[in-house]
Design a protein around this nucleic acid. Structure first.
Lengths: 199, 199
DNA sequence: TCGAATGTAGACAGATCTGTCTGGTATCGT
DNA sequence: ACGATACCAGACAGATCTGTCTACATTCGA
């Protein structure tokens, strides 16, 4: 059973090019710094085509974040599938390793959701709703993993891991991304306690 | 000895109004979302006057961050002066309490430096240099406090506290700022270890 | 073969952006 | 009294912003 259709917008080569280009440009330069003209020029798409697929720039921004969300969920699903036979604590450590790996990659510019929120102050804006959705998902996933790992206060610990996650994203962008692995491992060790500890 | 003058730009009522207005607008809406026209209109200042005090909008942005930096150093200096007779660990806890208090205030929109960095990708831009200066200062201050508190690895711990600081700023903006106090206290307890512990 | 869908190219409107410039006014020290 | 300084008001240039529109080309299924 294919689930390509219905709820998600129709796929087309032009739409794909626009979304890919917008993703690159929005992330690299910020949303407000990139105009529609530049996006369609680099995507090689006519303006009418653009507005045929997206009713406004705001909708494109929302689609950009939606796709980021989708990628992250897929990445986490892949990680969990590949680590199915491992203890939950190990999966957690690998999750943070994965985030640091991403943060060390050239061109990393922080968390796209945090960055977008910095540019969209209106909490009623769909972009902010997308940011909240993403955060809720991530926090819930952390809580699940911590529960499976036997953490006695999984929700409290998940809130702390959210601090580390956000700090990791900012730190990889603004500080030395190479030292971040040690820092985060140290932090995780202190926050989670010694291995096998259920406190 | 007054140090009001020379190195810092000349003070004037018009300049003051411009900088205050820009601070409010830049922080509330983001730098790129606020134009010079709006700033001078709300500041009640002529355009020529604006460009007489600031050679460009970029310079105004830099002045905005510079002032934020100044405010934070003053706030920390005040805190340390008021807590001079307390153990360093207690000062650290109060420092984070202060940050959370700020983060809970209405209109809080995250760390102005992190937000500015999200809008300025060019690492060679003066704005990014200002962000780095601020981070270096803050990390150094944490290291000093941790050293005074008898932490055995003050630099490593300071790096972790940077994670918490950044996560705190993001979390107060995007999540429930009211629960952040408990979360951060919990995190500090785990990261710093039990009171009196020098590990 | 025809019509619908999808695409390109680009003019256009109306607003807003940064930065420059002219001209007039008020204040203040000397 | 006078010159310097600071300020206000606003026109202006040139670019760029979002979004709409016209006109035409291509593809493909019925």
């Amino acid at each position: 059973m294919r689930t390509t259709a219905s709820d998600r917008p129709r796929e087309s080569p032009a739409r794909r090019r626009v979304l890919d280009t917008a993703t690159t440009l929005f992330y690299a330069h910020g949303v407000h710094a990139v105009g529609v003209d530049r996006i369609i020029a680099e995507a090689g798409v006519a303006k009418a085509t653009f507005y045929n697929h997206f009713s406004s720039k705001d909708e494109l921004v929302h689609a950009y974040l939606d796709e980021q969300y989708r990628w992250q969920r897929r990445a986490v699903a892949t990680l969990r599938a590949a680590s199915a036979d491992m203890p939950a604590r190990e999966i957690l450590l690998r999750l943070f390793d994965l985030m640091i790996e991403i943060g060390r990659a050239p061109g990393f510019r922080g968390c796209p959701f945090i960055n977008a929120a910095a540019e969209f102050p209106d909490t009623a804006h769909p972009v902010r709703a997308a940011v909240l959705d993403h955060r809720t998902w991530f926090r819930t996933m952390l809580t699940d993993l911590l529960t499976a790992a036997g953490d006695t206060r999984p929700r409290a610990t998940a809130d702390i891991l959210m601090l580390l996650r956000d700090g990791l994203a900012v730190g990889c962008y603004l500080d030395d991304a190479h030292t971040m692995r040690h820092i985060v491992r140290d932090a995780l060790g202190r926050v989670l306690g010694p291995p096998g500890d259920t406190a």
